[in-house]
Amino acid sequence: MKPFRIRELESTDAQALLAFEIHNREWFESQIDPRDPAFYSLTGVADHIDSYLADFAEGAWHPFVIEDSSGRIVGRANLKSIHSPHGCAEVGYRIDQRACGQGLATLALKHLIEAARMRWKLTQLVAYVYESNVGSRKGLERCGFVPGAVSDGEDIESGSRFVLSI
Rank of each mutant, 00 (worst) to 15 (best):
V146L: 13
F39L: 15
E29N: 15
A54N: 13
Y40W: 02
I6S: 07
H23L: 15
W61D: 12
I156M: 08
D47E: 13
G92F: 09
V146A: 15
N133K: 07
D13G: 04
W120N: 08
Y40C: 03
Q97H: 08
Y40N: 06
R94I: 01
R161H: 08
A77F: 08
R161M: 07
Y52S: 11
I32E: 11
Y52N: 10
N78R: 00
E154M: 07
A149D: 15
R25F: 06
D96W: 00
S41Y: 14
G148Y: 05
H62M: 14
V65L: 06
I66W: 03
E157D: 13
I32C: 00
A19K: 12
T43I: 11
P34A: 11
E26P: 00
G144K: 08
W27Y: 15
Q124T: 12
C88Q: 13
H86I: 00
H23P: 00
E21C: 00
Q124M: 12
V74H: 01
C143Y: 04
L17T: 01
V126D: 09
W27E: 01
M1N: 05
L122F: 04
W61Q: 13
G153Q: 01
F39H: 14
L17I: 03
I95L: 05
I22F: 01
F56G: 02
F4I: 12
V150P: 05
H62R: 09
R7E: 14
A46W: 00
A19V: 14
L122P: 04
G44E: 07
K80I: 08
E26H: 08
F28R: 02
L122T: 03
G148E: 10
F64T: 04
D96C: 01
L17N: 02
E114W: 02
I156C: 10
